[in-house]
């Protein structure tokens, strides 16, 4: 009986703690948006962060995109061939990439490459009192450190996702057309007939923007909220990758349900 009460109490404490943290995170996110003015007035602050979140993620995004596309080409060909419709390879590769794999896989890679870096960086700045020092110099760390990182990463994400999809389609083309010999004209024309700019491409871009906001907000909050110790920062970094991956997949389901319903 006592044990039961205790575990109930434990669950209750967890839930309350979780809700409280959500509240703190939401407030932090709103503060970040409110304090964004300075970042846009001094745009070089954002450019720096586009460099570290976007440009430094280029290699992993381009290479992964190419390989994912090549695998799609191979697997898709194997399957389509049994129905005698290998000309539809372009459709399969492009729709999977533009609607799903581009935004989702790029965001997952982004979370583990740029998201974890953001958390570690901010957590370390906090642990080494750099944020407190900034505050003592009458500079708001949310405006000077957090907001530029937010916008830099949010701007980078859709660019990375588009590059991932484009690379993937090239990968599928390489394997399907160049290597296996699917008819080139059919590959492209069927693709163009099936892929709609608004329905597919624009929705994919919207997805990647939403994922970018989610990953970056989580990464920034985890870093800002991390206990100021080496252990605290390393745990926060892990949590960023886990939480944002789950958030990406959950949001993807919701967005897909809204966007591609009935088409």
């Amino acid at each position: 009986m006592n044990n039961l009460l205790n575990s109930l109490r434990g669950i209750g404490a967890h839930v309350i703690d979780g809700i409280w943290r959500m509240g703190v995170a939401t407030r932090f996110f709103l503060m970040t948006l409110l304090q964004s003015g300075q970042s846009f007035r001094r745009f070089h602050l954002i450019i720096r962060e586009i460099f570290s979140a976007g440009v430094l993620s280029l290699i992993i995004i381009l290479v992964s995109g190419l390989f994912v596309g090549m695998v799609l080409g191979l697997q898709g060909y194997e399957t389509l061939q049994t129905y005698g419709s290998e000309e539809a390879l372009g459709v399969l590769v492009s729709l999977s990439l533009v609607r799903e794999l581009g935004p989702v896989v790029a965001a997952l890679l982004f979370a583990s490459r740029a998201g974890s870096a953001i958390t570690a960086e901010i957590g370390l700045m906090k642990a080494t009192e750099q944020l407190a020092a900034m505050e003592m110099m009458a500079v708001d760390p949310v405006a000077r450190v957090v907001a530029p990182r937010f916008w830099g990463a949010v701007i980078s994400m859709p660019i990375l996702a588009a590059l991932f999809s484009a690379m993937g389609i090239l990968g599928g083309y390489l394997v399907g057309v160049v290597l296996i010999g699917v008819d080139e004209g059919a590959f492209w024309s069927q693709m163009q007939a099936a892929v709609d700019f608004r329905e597919d491409i624009l929705n994919g871009v919207i997805k990647s923007v939403v994922f970018g906001v989610a990953v970056t907000a989580i990464a920034l909050f985890e870093g800002y909220d991390a206990p100021p110790t080496a252990e605290g920062v390393s745990r926060a970094t892990t949590r960023t990758v886990v939480t944002s991956s789950l958030a990406i997949l959950g949001l993807d389901f919701i967005l897909t349900a809204f966007m591609f319903r009935g088409v």
């Binding site: 976007g54 693709m191 892929v195 700019f197």
Partner: peptide, 24 residues
Amino acid sequence: DLWVGIFVVAGIAAVLFLALRVGN
């Protein structure tokens, strides 16, 4: 600035590729 410029231009090129070559 140069790197970020290249990055953004590459992104725009990718979107154009998707819109014109892949999409309708």
